[in-house]
């Protein structure tokens, strides 16, 4: 399954890696994996405060990331299915703000724990990177 995800990740985020040496290719692959996790995490993060439908999650992610990461919108849905399969979120049909039938996602207890854990990890990671950058 992991292979599937990393293939998907290639077009998940439209970032191009050009003129890559072997080392850079390795890096690119790692970054891909990282971003893959990022989308999942962002989706969880988007559901932290309220239950949302797919499009709203999309909007929320853009908002959180200040439109820095332009996500290929369709890729969100496989990510949501993955998360649902892992038991991090649950979905129910509801009615949207403009009166249409829409599928709403909500965070489960397990998902919340996961989100917190990942957030902590990220924070530590970025702190470390910042530290290194400053030292350098």
């Amino acid at each position: 399954m992991d292979e599937v995800f990393s293939v998907l990740s290639v077009d998940t985020l439209s970032i191009k890696f050009l003129s890559l040496t072997n080392l850079e290719k390795e890096m690119a692959k790692k970054v891909n994996d990282l971003l893959q996790g990022t989308l999942d995490m962002l989706a969880l993060r988007a559901l932290r405060d309220e239950n949302r439908h797919g499009w709203a999650i999309q909007q929320r992610i853009n908002q959180i990331s200040n439109d820095l990461l332009s996500i290929n919108q369709g890729s969100l849905y496989p990510a949501l299915i993955r998360l649902e399969k892992k038991g991090y979120i649950k979905s129910d049909w509801g009615v949207s703000e403009n009166g249409r039938r829409a599928k709403y996602y909500r965070l489960t207890k397990k998902g919340r724990v996961q989100m917190e854990a990942e957030a902590t990890l990220w924070r530590e990671f970025s702190t470390t990177i910042n530290l290194i950058m400053e030292i350098l």
Binding site: E3, V7, V10, L18, L20, K25, K29
Partner: peptide
């Protein structure tokens, strides 16, 4: 060398990823 297919770098993909494409 570099190979981009449909705007995507494919030279660095693993065998199973290539199979999928």
């Amino acid at each position: 060398g570099e190979y981009t297919l449909n705007g995507r770098d494919v030279a660095s993909l693993s065998a199973s990823e290539r199979a999928r494409i």
